[in-house]
Amino acid sequence: MKIYFANALFSQAEINYNAQLAAKIRQIDDAIDLYLPQENASINDKQAYADSKMIAQADTEKLLNSDLMIAVLDGLSIDNGVASEIGVAYAKEIPIIGLYTDTRQQGATNQKKLQALTQIAENQFHYVNLYTTGLIKLNGTIVNNEKDLLAAVANYI
Score class of each variant (00 low, 15 high):
residue 123 N to S: 14
residue 140 G to D: 07
residue 29 D to C: 04
residue 69 M to P: 10
residue 44 N to D: 12
residue 46 K to E: 14
residue 132 T to A: 06
residue 88 V to H: 04
residue 155 N to F: 07
residue 110 N to F: 07
residue 93 E to C: 11
residue 107 G to V: 04
residue 25 I to T: 10
residue 10 F to G: 03
residue 26 R to Q: 15
residue 105 Q to Y: 12
residue 7 N to Q: 14
residue 102 D to F: 00
residue 39 E to I: 06
residue 120 I to P: 07
residue 64 L to G: 09
residue 80 N to T: 11
residue 62 K to E: 15
residue 10 F to M: 04
residue 141 T to N: 09
residue 3 I to L: 01
residue 118 T to H: 12
residue 143 V to K: 08
residue 106 Q to T: 03
residue 47 Q to E: 13
residue 63 L to N: 14
residue 94 I to L: 05
residue 86 I to H: 05
residue 78 I to S: 02
residue 152 A to N: 13
residue 145 N to W: 11
residue 120 I to G: 02
residue 65 N to Y: 01
residue 104 R to D: 00
residue 60 T to N: 14
residue 99 L to W: 08
residue 104 R to I: 00
residue 92 K to D: 05
residue 156 Y to A: 14
residue 103 T to W: 00
residue 70 I to N: 07
residue 55 I to A: 07
residue 100 Y to N: 10
residue 109 T to M: 10
residue 32 I to A: 03
residue 61 E to I: 08
residue 50 A to M: 14
residue 95 P to K: 12
residue 119 Q to Y: 10
residue 134 G to I: 09
residue 2 K to L: 05
residue 17 Y to A: 13
residue 62 K to R: 15
residue 111 Q to V: 13
residue 53 K to W: 08
residue 19 A to Y: 11
residue 46 K to F: 13
residue 23 A to P: 01
residue 152 A to I: 09
residue 61 E to W: 04
residue 140 G to Q: 07
residue 93 E to T: 13
residue 154 A to P: 09
residue 62 K to Y: 09
residue 82 V to G: 00
residue 52 S to C: 08
residue 8 A to S: 15
residue 76 L to M: 05
residue 4 Y to I: 00
residue 73 L to H: 03
residue 78 I to H: 01
residue 111 Q to T: 09
residue 143 V to W: 11
residue 83 A to G: 04
residue 25 I to Y: 07
residue 110 N to Q: 05
residue 65 N to P: 03
residue 31 A to P: 04
residue 36 L to V: 15
residue 63 L to G: 14
residue 116 A to S: 15
residue 29 D to Y: 01
residue 110 N to S: 03
residue 120 I to N: 10
residue 137 K to N: 15
residue 153 V to S: 03
residue 87 G to C: 12
residue 157 I to R: 12
residue 31 A to Y: 08
residue 74 D to P: 01
residue 99 L to A: 08
residue 47 Q to Y: 03
residue 47 Q to C: 06
residue 53 K to T: 13
residue 38 Q to W: 09
residue 100 Y to K: 04
residue 58 A to C: 11
residue 126 H to V: 04
residue 41 A to P: 02
residue 28 I to N: 12
residue 146 E to T: 15
residue 92 K to L: 04
residue 66 S to G: 11
residue 108 A to V: 07
residue 144 N to A: 07
residue 27 Q to W: 03
residue 33 D to Y: 02
residue 54 M to W: 05
residue 148 D to H: 14
residue 23 A to Q: 06
residue 31 A to H: 14
residue 9 L to Q: 02
residue 36 L to Q: 14
residue 106 Q to V: 00
residue 10 F to K: 01
residue 17 Y to I: 10
residue 15 I to L: 15
residue 70 I to D: 07
residue 65 N to S: 10
residue 127 Y to S: 12
residue 109 T to P: 01
residue 21 L to Y: 04
residue 17 Y to E: 15
residue 134 G to W: 11
residue 79 D to H: 00
residue 97 I to H: 12
residue 121 A to P: 02
residue 115 Q to G: 03
residue 26 R to H: 06
residue 74 D to I: 00
residue 29 D to F: 01
residue 106 Q to L: 04
residue 150 L to K: 04
residue 138 L to Y: 00
residue 148 D to Y: 11
residue 139 N to L: 03
residue 42 S to F: 11
residue 114 L to A: 11
residue 88 V to P: 03
residue 132 T to E: 02
residue 80 N to P: 09
residue 96 I to A: 03
